[in-house]
Amino acid sequence: METLLQQIVNGLVVGSVYALVALGYTMVYGILGLINFAHGDVLMVGALVSLQVVLFVQKTWPALGAFPTLLIALVSAMAVCMAMGYIIERTAYRRLRNAPRLAPLITAIGVSFLLQTLAMIIWGRNYHSFPQLIDTTPLQPIAGVFITPVQIIILLSSACLMTGLILLVTRTKLGRAMRATAENHRVASLMGVDTNKIIATTFVLGSALAAIAGVMFSTNYGVAHYAMGFIPGIKAFTAAVLGGIGNLGGAMVGGIVLGLVESIGAGYLGSMTDLCNLPVWAQTANLQETCSNGGSFELLSSNYQDIFAFVILGIVLIFRPTGLMGERVSDRA
């Protein structure tokens, strides 16, 4: 039971980071119908910029406490990423808005490579250790579950950010303009919405979220690296599609579901497929010797952790081709 609870907590923490990144994918997709492949790399830039700022602040004003330092780093990372998001949209995507579908996707992959290469030139190929500003030693365990202050902060702040974003989209004028643009560019611009501005704003917002996720990621795991954005990027993209791409609620659900599936899957798949737990099978397969003395014969195990996401995605899409919470749209949408 303790183990299960612990796995759920682990899954929630990872899942909320996925969800935060997935929101960026889904916002851009909802409005432009574009998979912004470079989104994961914006996360990486956010993490590395904040690392640079933290090191700088610690050197110049060593007296400053951990929280203010992190805050300064976070704000500067967000500023850099927002500017970058704007520039990317302006230079790489805007001209392709009416191009065939594949063109912007290739550009996006190109931008992703470019960001990684530039980061590699600037920060080198080594893994950098991210200073431990917030305590990562666990608190007093509750019901046998260990949780660290960083993890609590991640859970709380992502919950706040997601709520904030939903309020922004559903309750404000900007949000209404965004929804209108997503529905139909041309009609929205006829109704007096500056669609170019709205699209740019969406990119900037998404990049800010990615920057926050990047800082969270690095504070939690204590590492930063030029290729660190790739895996969370792919996972978050999967989460966004799983939830129904273009749907904010879906991205959150997708992220959390993915986090839980990965963590519980890695934790239990091994013992579930352990032939030693199925005496009949073990006997037919002649495994007595392997199974004796607490041995095991696990067909699948944590080595398949990285494909759970894709398998779940495949299954969901077969039954609901537009994701868990996506709207059912016709072919011509």
């Binding site: 997709y29 119908g33 998979i35 579908r101 996707l105 792919i234 993209f237 999967t238 599609v241 791409i245 990285d306 494909i307 996401a309 894709f310 398998v311 995605l313 495949g314 899409l317 077969i318 081709p321 537009t322 072919d331």
Partner: peptide
């Protein structure tokens, strides 16, 4: 299984297939 999927869904599922 991916016949019904539209362009971008197809992209991620094929990507997943390659990784699997």
């Amino acid at each position: 299984p991916v016949l019904r999927l539209r362009g971008d869904y197809l992209a991620i599922v094929t990507l997943g297939f390659g990784e699997i």
